[in-house]
Each structure stands twice: as C-alpha cells, then as structure tokens.
Amino acid sequence: MPFSPLARALALTATLAMAGLSAQTAHAAAPIKSPFPKKAGRLAAASCPERPLSTGGIPRGREYLGAVMKCLDKSWAAYVRKAGRSLGRPVVRYFDEPQRTVCGMPWPEHAAAFYCTERATLVFPLTGSWIEGRTDLYPMKVAAHEYGHHVQSALGIRKAYEMAARARRERDGDLKRRYELQADCLAGVFLGSVWGSLGRPQRDWAALLDTVKATGDEDGERSHGKGASRASWLERGFRSGSPATCDTWSATAAKVS
C-alpha cells in the first residue's frame, strides 16, 4: 500500500534524525579530522647521523640535540609544505638545570623535555636520566616527540584539540592521550625516515620500544597513555613512514588507553 504524504514526511524526518545522530556519533568518536593529505605522502628518507652525547668525559647534549633539530626542521618543513601549509622553525631553549619558570609557566614536574605551545618553543634540560650517559635512541625519540607537537600546531591539530577539549569539558584525559600518542607516532615516522643513516642494528629499535614501554602513565594522571600504547603508536609511525597513519583521533578507546 503506498505511503500517504504525511507518512512519507515522517519517514524522511526519521531518516534525517538518524543521519544526524550518526554524524554526532562519528564526531564524538573522531573529534578531529586527520589533517594529513594524501598528496603529502610519506616523510622523505633523510640522513641524520647521530653525534656522540659525550666525548672524553665531556657532555655533548646540546650539540647532539642541535644536530637532531636541524634534521627535524628540514624533514618536517618539506612535508608540511607538501601538505599545503608552512612550518616556521620553533625556538629552542637549553637549560643545564630545571628552572622555576619557563615560557611563563612553572617548570613541568618530571618532564624530560617539553613544548611551549603558545610560544612555539622547545625546551630541553641538558641534565637528567633522559639524556645523561645514554647510548640508546631515547634522547632522539624525546626530541622527535616534542617536535611532533610543533607539527601538530602547524597543521591545526592543536587548535582543534583544544576546542574539542573545551567543548567536552573533558576530565578523563582521553583527548589529551590521543594528542600525545599522535606525537609519539609522528616521532616514529621521523625515526623511520632517518633510520638508514643511524648505523644502528635492529636490536636498538627493540631496545627503544622497551624503554618507551616503561614511560607509560598506568598510574596517576592519565595524560600520555600506557607504556604499551606509547610503544605501539611509535612503532606504527616507524613502520609506515606516513603521518597519515597517525590518526589517533578515530582509533578505538583501547588503542589510546
């Protein structure tokens, strides 16, 4: 039996309502659209030989990080340009010891290094277990993670994340973890792009993953993700070489725990 005009109107209204609900559900699951266009492709392979962190007993942390920063600047500027945006070089500040304040805020407790978003500034303490006496890739990974936040700012991810967090009045840290885990993934993309120039055996990559697994926030404030999640996203970026695989925003809750 054919539907009456009223019945058809009601059916259409219901369909539109369901479509709106689906759109809201999708938005809730992925509050930030991935900003990595296909045209940008992978992060280009590049050479970035490591410098020694110490020679003759003299710490060389600043020289080490300075060389890594040049590689990060060059690689990510080329990628962001292909993505249709521009990436200004961040300010880099080095400190022999933690300070009371930096970038107009208290020095973050227990932070290996950090990125001041409002001032586009990377801050690296040259002391602490994250860099002193290390022979592994962890200092490079930390630098690449913090630079990942600079990339997120350039591509509009940070602004979208902050707007979504305010709109949700988020308190459980879900969006914050997605933001931080994306930076881990972007760090993996960079490390993968320069891996061939590092002259390291594969076991050094496995050792880095083990180190990262120990940096999770299983207890206390859940802001960066469990160790297994951090290592997983780092590995994902490393294996893919493509920032487009770093879409933590549409990942299931289990993958960003």
Rank of each mutant, 00 (worst) to 15 (best):
T117G: 12
K82P: 05
A29V: 13
G88L: 12
C48G: 00
S240R: 10
P52R: 01
Y94V: 08
M18I: 15
E162V: 13
R203A: 09
L155D: 03
V189A: 09
L186W: 03
R169A: 13
L21F: 10
Y64H: 03
A9L: 14
Q182E: 14
L43A: 02
D219Q: 12
L43R: 02
E235T: 07
P98I: 10
G88K: 14
Y161P: 05
A113G: 04
Y179T: 03
P90D: 07
L234T: 05
S54P: 01
A160T: 06
G227E: 00
S223N: 08
V151N: 04
G196A: 10
A17Y: 05
A254T: 09
D219P: 00
M105Y: 09
H224E: 04
F95A: 15
A231Q: 02
S86L: 08
A78F: 00
A9C: 04
P52C: 00
L87D: 07
F190H: 12
P243Y: 03
P2S: 09
I131C: 10
M69I: 08
G57R: 02
D247H: 05
A214E: 12
R166F: 09
Q152S: 11
P243N: 02
R239V: 12
R60H: 08
R178A: 05
A30W: 05
A83S: 08
T215P: 00
D172S: 13
R93C: 09
D174W: 01
V256Q: 03
Y115M: 07
Q152W: 11
A111G: 02
A9G: 12
C103R: 07
K33V: 14
G199M: 07
F36V: 06
H110M: 13
M18N: 04
G104D: 08
V142M: 06
R230Q: 02
A244G: 08
K159A: 15
F95W: 09
T252D: 15
G227I: 06
L191R: 03
Y79T: 09
